[in-house]
């Protein structure tokens, strides 16, 4: 086995998170979100996009996860509530999510061991994101342009997921970031 780690798992710092609901066919809704956050909501299923220091993930046909630098969530939530009208929902979920980043040449194997989803680059190129089963928990997995994967897991499961990944990647050599 080479000294180079096959897998690098990095725990990201806490971020500001807002769960956003509304009608994607309502231009007023989309425009108001864009005006407040500078983010275009992805309307194509299972995609995500970065926007400056923020990012937004498609979670469902009327649901998105807006990820902001930590501390900005309260202000953005307030401004969204002011700007939005009609049917919508904004919920601060900053405490819910733990962010992990998985890189290294064997990263794909770790996902293959953990999830029934097809993470092959043909099926899951950069810009895709998917909510799926992850071991006995669940995760939002996003493909990054640099080939690494972001994993967003529920906080109460974060220790389990990290221990699981450590166990799964052992045979490839690994490093902690």
């Amino acid at each position: 086995m080479s000294d180079r780690p096959g897998v690098v798992l990095r725990r990201e710092p806490a971020r500001g998170c807002l769960n956003l609901r509304g009608n994607p066919r309502d231009a007023g809704f989309r425009n108001a979100v864009a005006a407040v956050t500078g983010v275009e909501l992805p309307v194509e299923s299972c995609t995500w996009g970065p926007a400056g220091d923020a990012a937004v993930y498609w979670l469902g046909p009327d649901e998105w996860l807006l990820v902001l630098p930590a501390g900005r969530e309260a202000d953005v939530e307030r401004r969204l509530r002011e700007a939005l009208a009609g049917s919508f929902s904004v919920v601060d979920t900053s405490g819910t999510h733990c962010f992990l980043n998985l890189s290294g040449p064997a990263r794909g194997y770790v996902l293959q061991k953990s999830s029934p989803y097809d993470f092959h680059p043909r099926n899951f190129p950069a810009g895709r994101c998917v909510q799926t089963v992850f071991a006995k928990a669940s995760a939002l997995v996003a493909a990054n342009p640099d080939g690494s994967f972001d994993l967003v897991v529920r906080r109460s499961y974060a220790d389990y997921v990290r221990d699981w990944i450590a166990d799964a990647e052992e045979e490839y050599g690994f490093a902690r970031g």
């Binding site: 061991k113 071991a135 006995k136 109460s156 499961y157 220790d159 699981w164 166990d167």
Partner: peptide, 17 residues
């Protein structure tokens, strides 16, 4: 598979664990 021991059933932990 690896769903044995501590992985048989995930342990959920609170922030004060």
């Amino acid at each position: 598979g690896r769903d044995v021991g501590g992985f048989f059933d995930p342990e959920r932990r609170t922030p004060m664990h």
